[in-house]
Design a protein around this nucleic acid. Structure first.
Lengths: 120, 120
DNA sequence: GTAGAGTCTGACATCAATGTCAGGTTCAAG
DNA sequence: CTTGAACCTGACATTGATGTCAGACTCTAC
């Protein structure tokens, strides 16, 4: 598929998809005319990238991480270096704290919403 | 307490505390000489603000939200308008999705970390 | 082959919280 | 009263993903 379809199917802008490529997060074939052509699996890849961004990982770390993932049909292409594992472990702990903080914030919002509803 | 102490106790920079004030998130008394003086409860307030920032709320929305919170010793100072409740409900749903996404990302990290450990 | 939609690169803009610096003032301790 | 640390305001810089625009090229359908 071409870039517009990928954008539409993932909800990510064309601009961002090109950016992902410059950051080494996403690869594409090129047509004879130089246009990007994506495989079907690019859809899942882009969604995953978005999730990792939302988790606060920066593109550089995502670029290191992605090749160490197990593909659905096999083992990882590369193995994570000990340094990367250390960094990812730190990220993991940060994500844990983030989830806890989010739960707190959600509770605050719930309380305000409930209080307002009670006053109607 | 003065701003330096508040910064130290909350882990938030002095710069950010002043910024919070310009955004209407944090109030302070002033000494005769014009320096900020904070009540004890400012500590919890700042931590809460940080959590709400981490949850992706922007300062403007936090400024609307804070007066609608129940104080530990009583009811809210203001009540949330229906528009605000609508917005906060949307934020709440966004936070829910965010938590789900974070859990996915954490699982990805766990998998990579576990795979790397297995290969040692 | 032509029209129009889609794509290309490259550059500059944006956003929002935070960092940093300069030049001046205030505070607390000696 | 003096000194040094802490504070003040205001301005400009930074970050990183994304938006937007311009000018040129490609692709598909007619």
């Amino acid at each position: 598929m071409r870039i517009g379809e990928l954008a539409q199917r993932t909800g990510v802008s064309v601009r961002s998809l090109r950016y992902y490529e410059t950051q080494g997060l996403l690869v594409s074939e090129r047509t004879a005319g130089g246009q990007r052509e994506y495989a079907e699996r690019a859809v899942d890849r882009v969604i995953l990238i978005q999730e990792l961004f939302a988790a606060g990982l920066h593109s550089r770390k995502i670029a290191q991480l992605l090749p160490c993932m197990r593909d659905p049909d096999g083992g990882p292409n590369e193995r994570a270096t000990p340094e990367l594992v250390t960094e990812l472990t730190a990220e993991r702990e940060r994500i844990d704290r983030m989830i806890a903080d989010l739960a707190t914030s959600r509770a605050v919002l719930d309380d305000v919403i409930a209080t307002a509803a009670r006053e109607l």
